[in-house]
């Protein structure tokens, strides 16, 4: 469990990035943190694995304050996939990259081999096993970064903007994968402004703006609220926009899923005819 109590954080430059965050992420929760660029999302999640320590307030992970633990200790349980994969990749081949943390955590060589195979397969980068990560395209590099974290199977997985640079199919694979991770009782925290990705995954959603939390709730409730959505510099899912472009037909309009929308429309047409 991650407990955040009245967290403030100010960068050395004087930027007050977090202004009193209170939040509890329960074990097994699936949380999407959304909001405009510069809202403080990355700053917040960097506190969850101890990369940043509070200026004031506290972040407590499974009963231990992040002030009292090293990044390495926290990392075993909390895996963090950076927004920019280049901040994470440094090995000469993709295989070494994915094996690196496993070696550091003291896994046995046979286990390392199995886990590397598993992770490379999962993210569809097996063919780049011997390739330098820097020869790959941005989306491919991102998947290498993902594979290297998932390989050590942390309890909590934090993904900062995982969909950036990913094509639709990879996004869909990733989405299914995240949902599956979560079904296996892992805590998954995704920072994203990809509205369609969230609409299809249906997590809990937290909106941030100016270093504060503006709203929390389920995806449908939050993403169909025009006022909240505008406040956080995101937009409603396309499906919500399509339905809200219709006059009042007495139909439910807080819909984010294309299949739900079509069945509502088909019902309406059937009643009419």
């Amino acid at each position: 469990m991650i407990e955040v109590r009245d967290l403030h954080f100010t960068y050395p430059t004087g930027v007050e990035a977090l202004r009193g965050i209170n939040l509890t992420v329960r074990d097994g929760e699936f949380l999407a943190i959304m909001g405009q660029n510069g809202a403080g999302k990355t700053t917040l999640v960097k506190h969850f694995n101890g990369l940043l320590k509070p200026t004031a307030g506290e972040v407590v992970i499974d009963g231990v304050s992040t002030r009292d633990a090293s990044v390495a200790q926290i990392a075993r349980n909390v895996g963090f996939v950076f927004q920019n994969p280049d901040h994470q990749l440094f090995c000469e081949t993709v295989e070494e990259e994915v094996a690196f943390a496993l070696r550091n955590f003291g896994f046995k060589e046979t286990a390392i081999k199995n886990r590397v195979d598993w992770a490379l397969n999962l993210l569809d980068i097996k063919r780049y096993r011997e390739t330098s990560p820097f020869m790959l395209s941005g989306g491919e590099r991102k998947r290498v970064a993902l594979a290297s974290v998932l390989a050590w199977d942390p309890k909590v997985v934090i993904l900062d903007e995982p969909t950036i640079g990913q094509d639709h199919r990879q996004k869909e694979k990733l989405r299914q994968f995240i949902v599956q991770l979560n079904a296996q009782k892992k805590t998954v925290i995704v920072v994203t402004h990809d509205v369609e990705f969230v609409a299809e995954s249906n997590p809990q959603v937290m909106l941030m703006s100016g270093g504060e939390i503006v709203a929390e709730g389920d995806a449908r409730e939050i993403l169909t609220d025009q006022k909240l959505v505008a406040q956080a510099s995101i937009v409603s899912p396309e499906i919500t926009q399509i339905l809200s472009g219709l006059p009042d037909l007495g139909i439910q309009k807080n819909v984010i899923d294309v299949h739900e929308a079509t069945s509502i429309l088909l019902d309406l047409l059937e009643v009419a005819s």
Partner: peptide, 10 residues
């Protein structure tokens, strides 16, 4: 991919 780092309004 000029907008991949930007929020939807941006």
């Amino acid at each position: 991919e000029p907008t991949s780092f930007l929020d939807p309004v941006g």
